[in-house]
Design a protein around this nucleic acid. Structure first.
Lengths: 268, 268
DNA sequence: TTCGATTTGTTCGTATGTATT
DNA sequence: TAATACATACGAACAAATCGA
């Protein structure tokens, strides 16, 4: 009773804030904060190894309460865009081999275990984008791309044949030397050297017969059924970073897809 | 200053509550609420077409604040287990054809569009579980299962051949008649008639050659490369509900998997 | 090694906005 | 229109992890 009768400085302030907020934009404040933080991350200015501004700092910057900032950050955590650690801070989600394996690496041995493949780079070349690559990378046909063909060995055997194309314009100064001698995953390289964080991928899977090249590299008969997928990897703002076509010999390995259940280790 | 000096009834109360909480369990309160709500949903007592208790009611029941209940429900929404509607209430996520298509139906036409397939049931039989089905369904080899074989037509053509096994014990009273004449999807039937809500699936994909049956049904040459996947569908508590093996003719259709990006339509 | 400052994690409570019935 | 139920936002307090002095 007492509380509800009193207009109070606090109530008045809240009201004026609400009014101000509405003038900003149609979006709720926490979503706008999310967008701003996303923009900050996609600018490449923040490195994956140094913390983002703290909740308090963001709150001051956006004239919001900590709770509202937290709401925005919670969403970004759920989307695997940032990671937070109590006592340390908030970081752009890194591309350690471990994280890549857990998030963007769908190939498992049939017994369910996973392993980091050994990569043999068969080709590193500069080419002109064909129609498929141009459409996937949203560039013009004929624009320069790097083409990289990798053979991936798992358990000592050739299992996957990977044909990757990335736009030359996105990777200035990339050379075969610097590519081969990278000390991280390909996605880690994109992020650490070029500020391009892969945040989502779209895989399209089909069954195909092995062509001559695949049969040779994967040591299977010509025409043997393989699992093929094309992947487009995107960074912020739905910008495509990489176009890849992969062939998998699924005798001992398979492609796994868990719908739901990724975000539910919390069934603890 | 002034505020921080005063112990205040409120502060004392908060302290005693915190102490009580710690006695409950090692888990944070919102996670325990999540578990309790999950338990309620998995009991089958709550129908998909009637609302769950409101936030206020849950708060009273669990002696928590609405904010804490909301935290728990937010998680369940993110996991697609419940849906909330402003002004209406909170509901167990339903299995409309639309939702099934968006969540558990990975097959797209190559141009990206989706369609609801026409289902021809080729077989409905009672069988004994073989080793693979028994392991997947976590029952004993030889236990009774229903086996259902469906041919799925898309765009007028046979595209998928579906071989499903579900434990007889989970579906008392299921008959071919009641199965065929269902007015919803298979997952919808599981949920509405048997209280089994599929909340996650695990698909394992490989490339395989068409065997005689598949070649006949899908109208492809013997040995033609097909996309195969086995799926185990789980309900609450990681209980398997369904084991399925599907063959897809990927001339005009493909299996799509979007990693990330499902929960980010919010990039609006 | 201990301790204090920093930063995120959990919980409470309140006020107000907005969609539904 | 009024009541109901979720959505957004604020702010406060304390817990727990981390890190450097």
């Amino acid at each position: 009773m007492k509380a509800s009768k009193k207009p109070s400085a606090r109530r008045m302030r809240a009201r004026s804030i609400a009014r101000r907020r509405r003038t900003g934009n149609g979006l709720p404040l926490y979503k706008r904060i999310k967008l701003e933080v996303t923009r900050l991350l996609s600018s490449g200015k923040s490195k994956a190894d140094e913390p983002l501004p703290t909740e308090k700092e963001f709150a001051a910057k956006f004239r919001a309460s900590v709770g509202t900032v937290r709401r925005a950050m919670d969403d970004l955590v759920a989307e695997h865009i940032v990671v937070r650690q109590q006592g340390r801070g908030t970081y752009l989600a890194p591309f350690s081999a471990e994280r890549l394996l857990n998030r963007f690496w769908p190939v498992h041995r049939k017994d369910g275990t996973r392993e980091i493949p050994i990569v043999q780079t068969l080709l590193f070349a500069t080419e002109r984008a064909d129609a498929a690559a141009a459409e996937a990378l949203q560039i013009r046909k004929g624009d320069g791309v790097y083409r990289i063909v990798n053979l991936l060995l798992m358990g000592g055997n050739p299992v996957m044949l990977d044909d990757v194309r990335i736009a030359k314009a996105d990777f200035p100064g990339l050379t075969e030397q610097s590519f081969i001698s990278r000390e991280t995953t390909m996605y880690g390289l994109y992020q650490s050297r070029y500020g391009l964080s892969v945040i989502r991928t779209l895989d399209r899977l089909t069954g195909v017969p092995a062509d001559a090249e695949a049969a040779h590299r994967l040591a299977v008969p010509l025409g043997a059924p393989l699992l093929a997928f094309t992947r487009i990897a995107y960074t912020f703002g739905d910008k495509p970073v990489e176009y890849r076509r992969t062939l998998i010999h699924t005798a001992a390995y398979e492609y796994r897809n868990a719908i739901g259940g990724e975000s539910l280790p919390a069934v603890t």
